[in-house]
Amino acid sequence: MPVIMSPKRAGLPSSYTTAARGGLSAKSSPRVERHRGGAYRLWFALPAILLVAFFFAGPFLANGVLSFTKWTGFSSEISFNGLDNFRSMISLGILGHSTLVTIGFAATTMLVQNTVGLALAKALQDTNRLNSVYRTIFFVPVLMSPLAAGYIWSAMLAPDGPINAFISLFVPGDFTYSWLGSESTALVAVGFIDAWKWSGLVTLVYIAGLNSIPRQMIEAALIDGASAWRRFRSIEVPMLAPSFTFNIVITLVGSFSALDVIFATTKGGPGDATSVLNVAVYRQYGQGLFGTSSALSFMIAILVILTAVPLIWALRKREVNG
């Protein structure tokens, strides 16, 4: 069995460690080393900084400014109109309703994805040939176009579709409930569809998290006679904190920006039952009301920031405390 030894124990000169860490010659002064190391990192970061500046910061700032303008397809003039766009969206009931629908959709998808993802991760944790096949199967929806997923599930959930046909086997008469056409179930249904689409990704993150837990801890717990549930609750869940942070934030924030699956299934309907903020953005945009559309889009950004920042802070704190 190979033994990992420190350079010093291995009898290597002390300059080896410096060279190995910083890639500099042993003769470089510490000051030069720090300076060159800093520039080295900056060059690596530059592409990311440029991408963020061009594709996020710029559009985000422009959208923020346009939120306070009267900008429509009816005129080429864009003029500042203060908070009129927000007042208009509030008075029409669009802002409040769509924000609530968005939160409901995001909460549904986050809960379903993480519950299903964690359960699947536990089931498929061990790396063997059979589990590899199942992992691949559960990952296929992630690779699928969201629109295709939406269309497939629209057919599956149609009143005369296979889901209802299956239910009809267990209930008297034909079961023809319209899952996507009923106000009471449409939002939950599209939430489940989105969760189905992305659960494979969440599962992989949890599998990686589970497999990074030192086996000695599990073995020690086994020796101490801890049950499977106790090991899961007292060892695996705390040790999965970074995975929880990533998955909860990504699924929640990602759902705030959802449009494609909803558009492919309900187009925001029936009525406005699944009209998340992005659907409202699309509808305002489509009517040439670009200023109000920007205001709604700005609200999505605000919602993401207000949710993600405290959530990440709280979950990271839990990681440290845990």
């Binding site: 056409g181 009923s182 106000e183 925001g268 309907g269 029936p270 009525g271 406005d272 039952a273 509808r283």
Partner: peptide, 11 residues
């Protein structure tokens, strides 16, 4: 959109 809301009993 508003007429669909009547169709499905939402409004």
């Amino acid at each position: 959109q508003v007429s669909v809301s009547v169709l499905v009993g939402q409004a």
